[in-house]
Amino acid sequence: MLNYAIRRLLMLVPVLLGMTVIVFMIIRAIPGDPAEVILGEKASPQSKEALRQELKLDEPLYVQYGDYLGKLLSGDLGKSIRSKEPIATEIGPYLAATLELTAFAMLFAIVVGVNAGIVSAWRQNSWFDYASMLIALVGVSMPIFWLGLMEQWIFALELKWLPSIGRANPRDPIDAVTGLYLIDTLVAGRFDQFGTVLKHLVLPGIALGTIPMAIIARMTRSSMLEVLRSDYIRTAKAKGLSQLGVIYKHALRNAFIPVLTVIGLQFGLLLGGAVLTETIFAWPGIGRYIFDAISARDYPVIQSGILIIAFLFVLINLLVDLLYAAVDPRISYK
């Protein structure tokens, strides 16, 4: 198991190396010039040329790439063109903000999606089944930006139940240690702030979690339907087990493996795909950080940001693969 994990982590190296090449090429293929974006259109050609030299943008691509890779291998993510700050320190809070949001969104998606899927399968063709599968269908087809705006309109503007934007109350700043505000406030014992942070998470979390929730619900339902027809479920019933015992002890664990795959993939997708949600809810996350960097042609930030997301994506999927073995004794890694 440990050997397998280490081997998989080593296999990450060529994957990430490939990522660096692709990202490096693609962002340089985008029209636009960082020097012009930074200095403005009216800057003189001389000053633009000077800046290009300073940023080493005048070197051939392979020299630039070699330079970038060399620094990367020594653990240096580079500096932002705009802020001149090291990306490694700058990106931390953004990453934490996104992690908190995606974790909350996935928690919502898993709890609601899995249970809706279970009940739908158990009561197949009931009104609950039809209703939840209709919601799931609407859920996957709903544009996030529209859902986000509707949430803000109804729950923030009209009902005034929940805050519409941001991560916390700006007049009551949070002492960030980990950058995950829920944890920071709990550790500091500030339960009032914890509540505020939680309230700020609800609307963007639901907006971001709706699509995965719908996908998980449909996956759980079809997987459960298959498992509920199996012989060992009949055995469990013949033993005199209660419905809940049959479902949660025998059926769900067997039905969970394909659901686990979907959860891993969705989690990874959300990490990089939260740009829309982060923009609508003014969430200072990594999606917006990279998006802004793209607009500013801040090459190092784009490269490092995407690399980190790719790394997390692969890491989560490795974790899912290892979880398979924990759920199913028939799967073992050598």
Partner: peptide, 24 residues
């Protein structure tokens, strides 16, 4: 019926390969 099943009346099936839960 839950008290009866497995306690007063038990049942075994044709397919021993699939009648047991693979995860327990």
């Amino acid at each position: 019926m839950k008290q009866v099943r497995g306690n007063e009346i038990s049942m075994i099936f044709q397919e021993p390969m699939t009648s047991l839960n693979p995860l327990l």
